Amino acid sequence: MNATVGAGTLGALLADRHSCRAFRPDPVPTAVLDDIVAQATRAPSWCNTQPWQVAILSGAPLEAFRAELLAAERSRPDEAEFEAGPPRYVGASLQRRREAGWALYSAVGARRGDRAATSTQALENFRFFGAPHVAVLSADAHLGAYGLVDCGSFVSLLLLAAQARGVATIAQAAIVSRPDIVRRHVPLGSDRTLVCGISLGFAVRGHPANAFRTDRAPLEDVRVHIGAPTPTVEDHP
Rank of each mutant, 00 (worst) to 15 (best):
T9C: 03
T9Q: 13
L14H: 08
H18I: 08
S19G: 14
V32W: 00
A43W: 05
W46L: 00
Q53H: 12
V54E: 06
S58Q: 13
G59Y: 12
A60Y: 03
A64N: 09
A64D: 15
R66S: 10
R76F: 01
E79S: 11
Q95W: 06
E99V: 06
G101L: 06
W102D: 11
Y105R: 07
S106T: 14
G109K: 05
A110F: 01
R115K: 09
A122Q: 11
A122D: 13
F126E: 01
F126Y: 15
R127N: 14
R127P: 01
F128M: 13
F129N: 11
A131D: 01
A135Y: 10
S138V: 08
S138I: 02
Y146M: 15
L148A: 09
C151W: 00
G152F: 02
V167L: 10
Q172K: 07
I175N: 14
R184F: 00
V186Y: 09
V186I: 13
L200P: 00
L200Q: 00
F202S: 05
V204D: 15
V204I: 12
R205M: 10
G206L: 14
H207E: 04
P208I: 06
A217T: 07
P218I: 10
V222K: 14
I226Q: 12
P229Q: 00
T230W: 06
T230I: 00
H236D: 08
